[in-house]
């Protein structure tokens, strides 16, 4: 290192550019280190420790012997745990497909209506997105009250309009509980795909649309042949995020039906099963870190693999305008 002169400025000519490079490097490092540390500490470390936990037997909170894949074998193949896992997984799949149709489908239709500036579009642009801003806890709680079998607004309304025979304990009936949760989720989140699709629609250059309109009078053909391919990037975002959200589904069912997936497993999803296995359900069971970690690892792998391959596939069909 060259000695500084008395006025503190180095005489070495190469120093100035080097200092600039290292200064920039320092700046980048300064910006990168906090997020990397946070990610490492709160994301990467937990994932790897969960991975490690999954290979041990747990006596309460004390780590026991290394048991290899026994915990995985238990949650996937050993009854009655396997039945619970597959039932929860089946429900996750149902939730995903139902939300694909209702939430993303409706999101697209709403976005299209807003984009075409139908009457009241300005108001609805805000109204549709409003529930997305609300906390899931509030949404879950309020809708739980709406679905209350005795005092709930839904049953009261049905009775008021003479459809009392349709009144049912929505969240306590095996036929309606999961559907009710899906409905609430779609109600709360439909604003998100709407916004993403709307942004995609607004990016389509008007010349393309004008040109297309000269070719066809059919709005449907226009949507199918021109608009849909052009907003494929928006669809990718909506589809993949919905997939991840559906298989990580936890808050809404937890708030509305509790940890057990009441009634008798009809609303059970992997998130709930993982939580009550790993952390224990105080009023029913005991905790099993090993099995819980195995479930978490399986969920992570499933979501990561499918979401990645699906994203790659969806990206391929996107067209840049």
């Amino acid at each position: 290192m060259p000695a500084p002169t008395s006025n503190g400025i180095s005489r070495t000519p190469a120093r100035t550019p080097r200092l600039r490079v290292s200064g920039r490097g320092l700046w980048i490092t300064f910006l990168l280190v906090p997020p990397v540390v946070v990610m490492a500490l709160f994301v990467i470390y937990p994932i790897f420790s969960a991975l490690a936990y999954a290979f041990y037997d747990w006596q309460g909170l004390a780590r026991g012997d290394f048991v290899g894949f026994a915990n995985f074998e238990k949650v996937l193949f050993q009854q009655p745990f396997a039945a619970t896992t597959w039932n929860a997984f089946k429900n996750n799949i149902f939730v995903f497909f139902a939300l694909m149709i209702i939430q993303n489908g409706l999101g697209f239709i709403l976005a299209y209506a807003l984009w075409r500036d139908l009457p009241g579009a300005r108001f609805h642009r805000i109204a549709v997105f409003l529930p997305v801003v609300l906390s899931t806890v509030i949404i879950g709680y309020v809708w739980k009250l709406f679905f209350h079998p005795i005092f709930g607004a839904v049953n009261q309304l049905l009775k008021a309009v003479g459809l009392g025979s349709l009144a049912t304990p929505w969240l306590g009936d095996a036929d309606t509980a999961l559907n009710a949760l899906i409905f609430v989720n779609a109600w709360a989140w439909v604003g998100f795909p709407t916004l993403v699709f709307l942004a995609g629609l607004q990016r389509i250059p008007s010349e393309i649309l004008d040109a297309a309109r000269m070719e066809t009078d059919s709005e449907l053909t226009l949507i199918r042949r021109v608009i849909w391919p052009l907003i494929a990037p928006s669809a990718t975002v909506c589809f993949v995020l919905l997939f991840i959200g559906s298989f990580n589904w936890f808050e809404l069912p937890y708030i509305m039906v509790g940890l057990d997936g009441s009634p008798y497993g009809n609303t059970d999803v992997l998130g709930l099963y993982f939580y009550r296995t790993a952390f224990g359900n105080q009023s029913a069971g005991i905790q099993d870190f090993g099995m819980g970690s195995a479930l978490a690892v399986l969920m992570f792998l499933f979501i990561a693999v499918v979401a990645t391959s699906w994203t790659i596939y969806l990206r391929k069909r996107e067209i840049e305008v």
């Binding site: 008798y264 029913a284 069971g285 099993d288």
Partner: peptide
């Protein structure tokens, strides 16, 4: 019966819920 999984509580709670729902 709440020492191992599935605990008696987990089982009874779900089964009674099912039974009282008429299932």
């Amino acid at each position: 019966f709440r020492y191992e999984e599935p605990s008696g509580s987990v089982l009874l709670q779900a089964e009674v819920q099912k039974m009282l729902a008429g299932e």
